[in-house]
Write a protein that binds this DNA or RNA. Structure first.
Length: 189
DNA sequence: AGCACGATCTGA
DNA sequence: CAGATCGTGCTA
């Protein structure tokens, strides 16, 4: 079931944990690809030195200050797009970075039955955006409409069975005291 | 106008 | 472990 706006309008840490086990859905070229989220990362508020918002609102990060349930997408290292979901109330800068998807994909094409396909594991934020063809044009995209890119709750409401492993966030060594915050979340095997 | 640098990934 | 690669934001 489609995840709606009110889900994203709450504490970012909570959203990041609850997104584990949910599905990222991408529809393009007549196909629907549905993959389980297995790793997320929270970026919350201007006091979070690892967050782009720590230096205030800029042209690049303005989506983070916008409505919850929108996408925040930016280019990193000159070649990879990062896919984030904006959280919490408007004008409070926060987002959840989607870092990993399970390699069990559900792919539905127009005149085909739904099938499970094993693809390469998308165990990195740059890999998954490349594979699902998510680029800068989706910056600010409304993920609660169910068009082109959206998120869904698990079919079986087994969220309570998911064990969450919290770790420091990746690639933020420059972020002084914020670098050690345990805001990276994975599904414990 | 110039410059330093990143919420990464790949291949050696 | 180095290299690829470029938009962004800061300095002047």
């Amino acid at each position: 079931m489609l995840i709606k706006k009110n889900f994203y309008n709450q504490d970012t840490i909570k959203v990041a944990k609850r997104l584990l086990g949910c599905y990222l859905v991408r529809k393009y070229r007549g196909k629907i690809i549905r993959a389980k989220i297995i790793e997320t990362e929270a970026y919350q508020g201007e006091n979070d030195l690892a967050s782009h918002a720590s230096k205030g609102k800029t042209e690049r990060n303005k989506a983070m200050f916008g409505e919850p349930g929108r996408a925040y997408i930016y280019l990193i290292y000159g070649m990879y797009y990062m896919f984030n979901i904006v959280t919490e109330k408007k004008n409070f800068p926060a987002a959840v970075l989607i870092r990993g998807l399970s390699n069990d994909y559900q792919i539905k094409t127009k005149n085909q039955k739904k099938r499970i396909k094993k693809l390469k594991k998308l165990d990195g934020p740059g890999k998954l955006t490349k594979n699902l063809v998510i680029g800068k044009s989706f910056n600010g995209w409304d993920l609660t409409k169910g068009e082109k890119i959206w998120l869904e709750y698990p079919v079986l409401q087994n969220q309570n069975n998911i064990k969450v492993k919290a770790s420091p966030r990746i690639g933020v060594d420059y972020a002084k005291d914020s670098k050690d915050w345990l805001w990276n979340f994975k599904i414990e095997e």
